[in-house]
Design a protein around this nucleic acid. Sequence first.
DNA 1: GTCTATAGCAAGATAGAC
DNA 2: GTCTATCTTGCTATAGAC
Lengths: 228, 228
Amino acid sequence: MPTAAVADPVTTRGELTKRLIVDTALRMFREQGYEQTTMRAIAREAGVSVGNAYYYFASKENLIEAFYEDMQVEHLAHARPVLDASKDFGDRLRGTFHAGIDALAPYHAFAGKFFKTAAEPTSPLHPLSSESEPARNASIALFREVFEGSSAKIDPELRDELPELLWMSYLGVILFWVHDLSPEQAKTRLFIDKSTALVDKLVGLSRLRILRPLSRDLLELIADLKAD
Amino acid sequence: MPTAAVADPVTTRGELTKRLIVDTALRMFREQGYEQTTMRAIAREAGVSVGNAYYYFASKENLIEAFYEDMQVEHLAHARPVLDASKDFGDRLRGTFHAGIDALAPYHAFAGKFFKTAAEPTSPLHPLSSESEPARNASIALFREVFEGSSAKIDPELRDELPELLWMSYLGVILFWVHDLSPEQAKTRLFIDKSTALVDKLVGLSRLRILRPLSRDLLELIADLKAD
DNA sequence: GTCTATAGCAAGATAGAC
DNA sequence: GTCTATCTTGCTATAGAC
């Protein structure tokens, strides 16, 4: 007896509902903050039941995960034109940092709570967690492209580790941005400009013989810390 | 026991009650974790009412503040013998970093929650907050002594900024430690040994003429970020 | 599998009486 | 300063509709 199976639409009903809940939540987070936005209010505003919201998101924090993923995608999109425009390492790095902050900018007020959550070592949102490995790898790959698509030279032994180091620097920039209270986070923009220029110089100098021992020490340190 | 602006002697009834609540809370945090320890349980264990606990501590997080202050005092105490023992900058820095981690060690399991709270930009526990300025200044002064009591030389222009840079490095060490899952946090110990050796070398090299432009850039960056 | 409605728990936080 | 009673909210549970 053949059952008349209903073909699934490209975007299922469930995915639409999920998206509706996420969008509502992120908007409310932006407008009134994370703590002030209750799950009850999100459900009411999205026109679904509380139970339905929890059907798609196991916890309120899980809603932040969606934000995390959105930002990841936005960063790649914002960085693309930069990487297509210049071969200068300093320009590429600076542009890629700025691109990330551009994507984050509308959420600055909310970002403190987001960061607080992600900062906890056991959180799945933590940048070093296994759950965020795909996002992390994508981000590191972006920074690999920043260097490898450039005309810069570097101490060859440092080359393999550079993308990860740049990614960690980017985390540092975000950390700075989260705490930046200057208008429009202007200090973060300044910080990016100055610090990327510094990194650019350091990379160039890394091939100097006097600095070789330093590079070696750095590599050794990294190797030790990666070892189990 | 040094009693700086951090811990005044306790005499009045209110202060006794406050101290009782803090001590009970910190002990319970150590023994069963932060989340697992409810305000009800703290109050019960301390023999006071929940309302009374909230009379002294506006929130559960505020109890962490006491931990913060205790650790500050302990760090200074642990570092003293190190600074009395050697004039070598590398040794002094390494020893001072280890001293801080020694003080923190019993709280490693609990530290993730602590860090999460302190990481929030608006938190009074934040290392950069105005509320924690006294503790911050005491800590920076410690690192000033680390360098100035040593036999090391440095690019004179960097000299004034070094204590603050070392203090920030120390924050980085704590950040590393919080996330260190290795047995006894052995990786943190390794990280301290290797990274302080690196910093020691960098400080020595800072007087090389080739590196002057880098120092200048760094100083300029710091000056810009400090400016209002 | 998707969704509603509702009841209820646990724990952080508060109000108001004494 | 201290208490008891109560509120709020994240989250769960259940029972059922489509």
